[in-house]
Design a protein around this nucleic acid. Structure first.
Lengths: 190, 190
DNA sequence: GTAGTATCGATACTTGAAGTAGCGTAAATC
DNA sequence: GATTTACGCTACTTCAAGTATCGATACTAC
């Protein structure tokens, strides 16, 4: 296994990710500057910028690492979707992750390049997996993602606290009902 | 009608609000600096800071002015809620308003003071009106607001474009179904 | 060993935006 | 006219993102 010459990169990615979440958790997203994250990780700020081009890219990579693969398990489509909703709700509730997610989303609103990074690296893998397992068209899956993630982030953003389990279950019920609409006495919806 | 001595404030609030939306619409929220908004309005930046303590407070006041009262009309609760959803979706689709809304919301995530302003001045009036007209408890109405506003903002944030009518109708259907759950063959939900 | 290459740490710097201070001036009341 | 309050203007402070540079370090190739 021939390696390229030069000093190899030290394995500090995990250290930086942990420092990022810890800093965001203790200081909030706005005060989690790259300087402070670097200090928390015990490395130089310039080292961070050699690996990730912008702060948004760093946070996105951190979230991709923190989320990992979605456990889309269940015996039918409703159960699979419900598992996915409970999983993302729990992740957003973990210390630092929710605030980092909301922060980078917020930054992406007016930054098309970051939006691209966020969409491609964070949303698309889960969207594609959901399309496969639910056998639903892209537009429909994107709608479910808007509903679930938007709701969870709005709650976190307006209250500062993650959504409580009872409301998560209401969300599960609402979305799974939309996925498999019940036949109503007046006939099925057009 | 006795007036206090001193030079009266000139009636520039509407001019500033219009300049704010115009600037946000043409440049995006991030580049809509207070300097540029002041220039667009043809006044000094210091005049803006004499009226609103922070940029977030300015944007919030601008949104309160732009939204106005919600038209919660209809013959039953579902129709009233549907009218409210279509109204806020249309408002968020207007040029500048959606971007300004997403921007302040984003800023509020890590700014408790701004969150307070946003909650008290923008959300609470509509929440209270909804509680009255829907005859639902506060927690339930807050959940609906999270779902509707969160979904609309997530779509705008991830795509840069407001939600199309077909998806707004899917949202209406989903939320009104949750408001008045249909009796399913397996029995009503606990 | 030496040469070459790529990374790290450290310091300093540029840029841009939020918010503040101070001052002269304009428009009102008394 | 005296007082009071708001405006325009310029300059300033503060902070964070991102960049530039340079010496030191850790590896490969010979």
């Amino acid at each position: 296994m021939p390696r390229t010459p030069g000093r190899p990169r030290s394995g500090i990615d995990d250290t930086v990710f942990a420092a990022t979440l810890a800093t965001v958790n203790s200081l909030g997203y706005a005060r989690a500057t790259v300087d402070r994250i670097a200090a928390e990780a015990g490395i130089a700020k310039t080292t961070i910028y050699r690996r990730w081009p912008t702060k948004g890219a760093l946070i996105t990579a951190c979230l991709v690492d923190a989320f990992g693969p979605a456990p889309l398990t269940g015996t039918d489509r409703s159960q699979i979707l419900a598992a996915g909703i409970r999983w993302i709700a729990a992740k957003i509730g973990e210390p630092g992750i929710g605030a980092a997610f909301a922060g980078v989303f917020t930054d992406a609103v007016n930054d098309p390049e970051l939006r691209q990074i966020l969409s491609a690296q964070l949303q698309d893998p889960y969207r594609l997996a959901l399309q496969e397992v639910l056998n639903e068209p892209e537009q429909r899956v994107l709608f479910y993602i808007d509903v679930v993630v938007g709701t969870l982030l709005h709650r976190l953003g307006m209250t500062g606290r993650p959504m409580v389990d009872a409301d998560v279950e209401a969300l599960v019920s609402m979305v799974t009902t939309a996925l498999n609409p019940p036949l109503s006495p007046g006939g099925p919806p057009a």
